[in-house]
Design a protein around this nucleic acid. Structure first.
Lengths: 316, 316
DNA sequence: GCGTTTCGAGTAAACGATTTCCCAGAGTAG
DNA sequence: CTACTCTGGGAAATCGTTTACTCGAAACGC
């Protein structure tokens, strides 16, 4: 039976046909659980991301999924909502369900994947690095942030603020670093009063914008670390009757589909999200089923960003 | 062991502690596969949606996930990309993995879930109906579409076009129906030349817009059946130098986060996506683990839409 | 024609948990 | 003191597959 269905070794063609016919007749479906239990592996990958509503991560998910589909794996998509507890829970689920690989965008650099690696389950970090040495697909966030901020200054804005992600997220840290480097490169003094951490969420970014604008020496422009937060900034600026690309400048990370159609069109730092997903999937493929002693050394891929200048960052 | 870890019946407290201590010591993790095999069920739901990049579906996913988390289930998210073959594949995976429930937004009304129902796996349809009688969470799409189109006409637009989804999708059909009803209600003759099916995708909608505008008697406004396609329409209109809410009118389904910030802000038909996910999860909860003969009759919930008027649908 | 090899197919063990069954030993009543 | 009841926990069956092992028959060479 098993031999027939898996087309293994030499099975008499006639018998094989009869078996298949009988299986079809009885509506036989093989039990994936039993199969996985026996094989000690499931043809499933876990993809653990921090925000399913963020187009950046859904683009990654599509990339991963395309590779998985091609290679015969199913993808279990888990959404951690930037919550370390949820992340830990899903990592445990992945372990219990014996997935053959995990692609993770960790909440923080110290996320604990030791259980998985001990069991030989390959892990690929995507978007954000891990302290443990694993395959990683990262973006040159600092360089992208620096380019964006320098562009703001070169466009004539005097006091760019930075609204970045949570202090625990490496991407948030790197984008802040890039912002600071740009100020230094353009002979400006980085001021802590112009920096806010806003958890990558729109509403937190709106609050941060309000705080900055109500400050003693408000900024005249914003570098924002993702597109969700850009929405929050836009909302707060509109509430104050300020026009982007007119009264204030704005550049944000992520080339979300809608950014070209806002009033003004948003200047963005585009990340190759889909390609990151594909790359992560391909790195994983090279590890699943490979004996531990033949595994390649951990590889790190850093992809460049691309600054796309539209109206929001320009002065009238 | 099993009895200890599941806190069953009367186990001596001391022994239970020793067992737990030993388990912790040895780093014991129970094998979810073996457990599910023996129990003939996995504490997993499959959520099969047609477009992971669409914020409407990700909002549903969040609703489902919140309920699942609360009830102790994990959610496997499957993306069919509007492809019936992928949908069939994921339905089979769901069956093989013995999930305890499936929430599905079917590609077409005839999607085959008979294997699942025969095995007693409860299925909830969300967003789109199924011919088979199952629990369903739907939206009053036709009413929403009618209201939106009537609003366009009442705002002074003379020739509203309709760009809807694929002909196989029930939501697309219903929104088209609502559009037609609005024309009739406003004493206009529905013209087939003003209707396009565009697969719910931005690029197809851009093409459809170009076709309509190049037609003999072009429309002066658009009712668009989802927010993805609205982006395509905006793109094509911009390419032609036409301003929304000025030269042409526009109303679209889905209150995506960015719709308030386009130039002009988009008038939209808001769907209660998160609530739909929650409701679907709650309907499922009432079936998982319930014997077949005690299952309630299939229930259908129809949720209302809400028209949100912003600038894009108004005449100057 | 007999011994050896080959090849297909049937049988049974194993994967790791849950759960039923059963027994030993304690406890209680007569 | 004996007999019966009760209870905690050990042993074994079970879930549905894969796979190693075994065995019978056919084929081949000498």
């Amino acid at each position: 039976m098993s031999r027939t269905l898996n087309n293994q070794e030499t099975v008499d063609a006639d018998l094989a046909d009869r078996v298949r016919a009988a299986a079809a007749e009885l509506g036989y479906r093989r039990n994936g659980l039993a199969r996985s239990l026996r094989l000690q592996r499931a043809d499933v990958w876990a993809l653990i991301i921090s925000d399913i509503a963020n187009p950046f991560f859904t683009a990654i998910a599509r990339g991963v999924e395309d590779v998985a589909q091609r290679e015969g794996f199913s993808v279990v998509l888990c959404n951690t909502d930037e919550d370390p507890a949820k992340e830990a829970q899903y990592l445990e689920v992945a372990e219990q369900e014996q997935v053959s690989g995990v692609i993770l965008s960790p909440n923080e650099i110290g996320s604990d994947i030791s259980q998985l690696t001990r069991l030989g389950v390959p892990v690929v970090a995507v978007d954000r690095p891990l302290r443990e040495r694993v395959d990683s697909v990262l973006v040159r966030s600092a360089a992208g942030a620096q380019e964006a901020t320098e562009h703001l200054i070169d466009a004539g804005w005097r006091r760019p603020a930075c609204i970045t992600g949570p202090e625990t997220a490496q991407t948030a840290i790197q984008r802040l670093t890039g912002y600071r480097r740009a100020l230094v490169a353009r002979k400006k003094r980085p001021a802590a009063s112009l920096v806010r951490h806003a958890d990558y969420r729109a509403d937190r970014a709106a609050t941060a914008t309000a705080e900055l604008m109500d400050g003693r020496n408000p900024p005249d422009s914003f570098f924002v670390a993702n597109s969700e937060m850009a929405l929050g900034v836009l909302q707060e600026l509109r509430r104050r009757g300020l026009r982007v690309g007119e009264d204030v400048g704005l550049v944000a990370f992520d080339n979300a589909p809608w950014t070209a159609f806002t009033d003004r069109p948003l200047s963005v730092v585009a990340q190759p999200a889909y390609e990151m997903g594909v790359l992560a999937g391909e790195l994983l493929i090279e590890r699943v089923g490979v004996p531990l002693d033949q595994q390649p050394a951990p590889r790190v891929r850093r992809l460049p960003t691309e600054l796309i200048v539209r109206g929001s960052s320009l002065r009238p």
